[in-house]
Amino acid sequence: MEKNKLKGWLYLLPAILFLGCFMVYPLIDVFVYSFEESYNFASQTYQGTGGFNFAYVLHDTYFLQAVKNTFLMVIITVPLSTGIALLISVGLSSIKPLRRLFQTVYFLPYVTNTLAVGLVFMILFKKTEYTDGLVNLLIHWFGGESVDFISGPYWAKMFVMCFYIIWVVMPFKILLLTSALLSVDQSYYNAAKVDGTSGARIFRKITLPMISPTIFYLVITGFIGAFKEYSDAVALFGTNLNAAGMNTIVGYVYDMLYGDSGGYPSYASAAAIILFVIVLTITCINLLISSKHTTYN
């Protein structure tokens, strides 16, 4: 028994060492930096300890803007993308002909490079000297005023941003949901049909509970993913996100470290810790809710 335990630890050792060096140690370091005032990488010096960094970050308008942006993205994209993915998956699994084709089509964005997708969005939305973008053409068609989605009003930029995020995360969700739907045993549906259950009730009382573990998984990972949003914003609005007013929390951290106004590891660390606390809290709430609602696994 004891010997086996030792063996177990031995097998785990490489992973523990690796994780310790590259995950746990940096995490602790970030935590430490966040409490050290004006830490300097080069000289490895700091001026004092305390909550100063947090106070600074929490009063920085750029940071507050980033938090607002991030929260908006999370609140809009997670429910919408999951809901739409569910609709599409249900549609996909109820049609027979061409299912494969549709599945492939819906999966394409997943294997497409983010920047390539960004390019497509530029064609759709960007105003240049020659064209207002495809979407504006449509708006014109219906008699509307053209909108500058990339450098225009805030809501337009947020709309494009959310549209983009949803579009990027959708394929993965569809993939998981269709396979979850297909794995529901046909005999449950047969039993329900014999009992005269209406389609809506079958969906609500049988399909949804059966695939709820997958849905919760998607929601939790969706929240985490959306809170870490950064590269998609860069793909759409360029690297100077603060100027565009579309910065995210991760973007703020990056800017504090390496941006034009960068070189502040202490502020970056504080912002990172704040993000960490937010994600942790939300994930805990999610897990709590999901464990209450998916007693069946």
Binding site: D185, S187, Y188, N190, A191, I206, P209, M210, T295, Y296
Partner: peptide, 11 residues
């Protein structure tokens, strides 16, 4: 109907 695998709703 009682199905071959019972088809009781597990949840």
């Amino acid at each position: 109907v009682v199905f071959q695998n019972y088809a009781l709703y597990p949840h």
